[in-house]
Amino acid sequence: MKILVCISNVPDTTAKINFTADNKALDKNGVQFVINPWDEYALTRAIELKEAKGGTVTVLNVGEADTEPNIRKALAIGADDAIRVNTFPKDSFFVAQQIAAVAKENNYDVILMGKESIDYNGSQVHNMVGELLGIPSVVPAFKLDMVDDQTARLEREIEGGKEIVEVKLPFIASAQQPMSEPRIPNMRGIMTARTKPLKVVEPVAADVKADYVTYSKPEKKSGVKMIAPENAGELITLLRNEAKVL
């Protein structure tokens, strides 16, 4: 089975987010970047499937050279090879077109992504790639098993419940907890990752339809009003009469 895992390179979950002086870009100073947490669920599930059924796991990132440490980390966790499309990910549709172009060339059986990138929070790329390739996209899935060589059984979350779906290869799924238990790279993995192939390809011409104009941060809270524990019931009164949320 040929599996493609798309990973995005995002600020660490504990990062404080700041923007450049003109508010037009993320200020990367002091920000550590990680593999998007949801993509790690996709990656480990892909590696588990490979271990069980044989095949290869390729990781793909659309990004500039500074994403390579995290691509190497994915290789250290257990992917076999990697592709980086050398361009800034301008918007979801742009990224989706780059991924679709790579996928068309390589005929993957399964394409796994994360439920959402924690920087853009788009939840778009997987469904867009599915539409571009004309294959099913099961989003967001929290369970993925192969029924036979040609069929996968997935459980996807819907508001208020879940759906069990069976799809034929090829398909796309986006991962969320608890699809797998993300792994930490071991020493041997880190050593072998250095020599695993990482191919850099140039982007295909693609449209951008959303133009990020400016960024801003939410207003700071005005401060917390404390209530003594023995008068806890008072809180309910404040929530009704002052905050007007009850």
Binding site: P11, K16, I17, N121, Y215, S216, K217, P218
Partner: peptide, 19 residues
């Protein structure tokens, strides 16, 4: 131009929809 939540609630982005 619409405003959308980004960086998991830590920020907003103003995005021009051009199509």
């Amino acid at each position: 131009v619409v405003t959308r939540g980004v960086f998991s609630g830590k920020a907003f982005a103003d995005v021009a929809l051009t199509a």
